Simulated scan of single mutants.
Amino acid sequence: MTAFAYIGAALTEIAGCFAFWAWLRLDKSPVWLMPGMVSLALFAYLLTLVEADHAGRTYAAYGGVYIVSAIAWLWLVEGARPDRWDMIGGAVCLCGAAIILWRPRAA
């Protein structure tokens, strides 16, 4: 469930932020803002589904998933192929997220 919540949160956050980017930077209609706001609200909801003792730890671990998802967005939506440094950086961030989320915790 955690992986699905994080991936869903990343996709909805990127889509919501892209809607604002499209409006402000690509001169799209302000109508783009409505689905963008809905998407950002869904993003916030999805993060609440992650099983973690503290919100801050959930958000910190999510950061790695977000970075990898943003690199995928760069490639799949924007058509810019990530370079090896994008891939290495994404892998490092994802490893960091796994350490934060799944390291052994004292009871």
Rank of each mutant, 00 (worst) to 15 (best):
residue 44 A to E: 08
residue 65 V to S: 09
residue 37 M to E: 00
residue 19 A to Q: 02
residue 72 A to P: 15
residue 44 A to M: 06
residue 46 L to Y: 15
residue 47 L to F: 02
residue 38 V to Q: 00
residue 73 W to H: 11
residue 69 S to R: 12
residue 23 W to N: 01
residue 40 L to C: 05
residue 34 M to N: 04
residue 23 W to T: 00
residue 25 R to V: 04
residue 57 R to M: 07
residue 70 A to I: 11
residue 72 A to K: 09
residue 25 R to Q: 13
residue 36 G to K: 01
residue 36 G to V: 06
residue 40 L to Y: 05
residue 23 W to S: 03
residue 43 F to Y: 11
residue 48 T to W: 13
residue 25 R to K: 13
residue 62 Y to P: 04
residue 22 A to E: 03
residue 54 H to W: 00
residue 60 A to H: 08
residue 72 A to Y: 13
residue 52 A to L: 01
residue 72 A to R: 12
residue 22 A to F: 11
residue 66 Y to W: 14
residue 57 R to Y: 07
residue 55 A to N: 04
residue 20 F to G: 01
residue 33 L to K: 00
residue 72 A to F: 14
residue 37 M to Q: 05
residue 16 G to Y: 01
residue 72 A to C: 09
residue 20 F to P: 01
residue 61 A to T: 09
residue 40 L to S: 07
residue 20 F to V: 03
residue 55 A to Q: 07
residue 59 Y to L: 08
residue 20 F to C: 03
residue 30 P to E: 04
residue 16 G to C: 08
residue 20 F to Q: 01
residue 24 L to P: 02
residue 61 A to E: 11
residue 60 A to V: 14
residue 26 L to M: 08
residue 46 L to P: 08
residue 58 T to I: 10
residue 27 D to I: 02
residue 55 A to C: 02
residue 48 T to P: 04
residue 53 D to S: 10
residue 49 L to W: 12
residue 62 Y to E: 12
residue 25 R to S: 14
residue 19 A to N: 02
residue 61 A to P: 12
residue 48 T to N: 11
residue 57 R to A: 12
residue 69 S to D: 14
residue 49 L to A: 09
residue 47 L to D: 06
residue 26 L to E: 15
residue 45 Y to V: 06
residue 37 M to I: 09
residue 64 G to Y: 07
residue 70 A to N: 14
residue 54 H to V: 06
residue 44 A to C: 13
residue 28 K to Y: 13
residue 30 P to Y: 08
residue 48 T to C: 10
residue 67 I to T: 15
residue 56 G to M: 06
residue 43 F to S: 01
residue 46 L to M: 14
residue 45 Y to M: 05
residue 31 V to G: 07
residue 27 D to M: 05
residue 62 Y to K: 08
